[in-house]
């Protein structure tokens, strides 16, 4: 099977790769590019552990074919912190113990960031429905929801809201 040459942007860097036509974006990120922060929990788009954004749109990278990334802007968990500085969501997840085992965490962070870019003032119900595509089996979601709500408030400039 002839490989396909793909030119794309990943976390702000111009990136090229060769992939099989039937390879998923998740497999290319993990196996070809060494970006193992995106996780495979199901391979069927049900768990959200492989969440990335394509041109700002939240997707399960296990449901995207790798050739589809041509010319797009992909953002993964590896691009979320800026140098030594964690994104406020990353910082708050640690501070508020919004993770236990941590396997779902990259997906939740990517999904939460996409939510706050779209909706800076979500209600608890809106956060819960937005994150309903991400499975966490450890936390019961409680501290994840609280962390996202608190970051939203802080980013709006109302630290104790």
């Amino acid at each position: 099977m002839a490989k396909i040459h793909v030119t794309t942007t990943i976390n702000g860097s111009a990136t090229e790769y060769l992939c099989d036509p039937n390879q998923t974006l998740l497999d290319v990120l993990r196996d070809n590019l060494g970006l193992t922060g995106s996780k495979e929990g199901c391979g069927s788009g049900d768990c959200g552990a492989c969440s990335v954004t394509i041109n700002g749109r939240l997707v399960c990278s296990c449901l995207v074919l790798a050739p589809e990334a041509e010319g797009q802007k992909i953002n993964t968990i590896e691009g979320m912190a800026q140098g030594e500085k964690l994104h406020p969501l990353q910082k708050k997840f640690v501070e508020m113990a919004a993770l236990q085992c941590g396997i779902c965490t990259p997906g939740f962070l990517i999904a939460s960031k996409a939510l706050l870019e779209k909706n800076p003032s979500p209600t608890e119900t809106e956060v819960r429905y937005w994150l309903a595509g991400n499975l966490c089996r450890c936390t019961g979601y409680d501290k994840i929801i609280s962390a996202v709500m608190e970051v939203a408030a802080e980013m709006r400039g109302a630290p104790n809201a």
Partner: peptide
């Protein structure tokens, strides 16, 4: 007390290496 967990930074950045990594 409730300090940050020692493996916190690794687990929110994708650096932590799980089985398949």
């Amino acid at each position: 007390t409730r300090p940050d967990r020692p493996d916190g930074a690794d687990k929110v950045t994708g650096r932590a290496r799980f089985g398949a990594d």
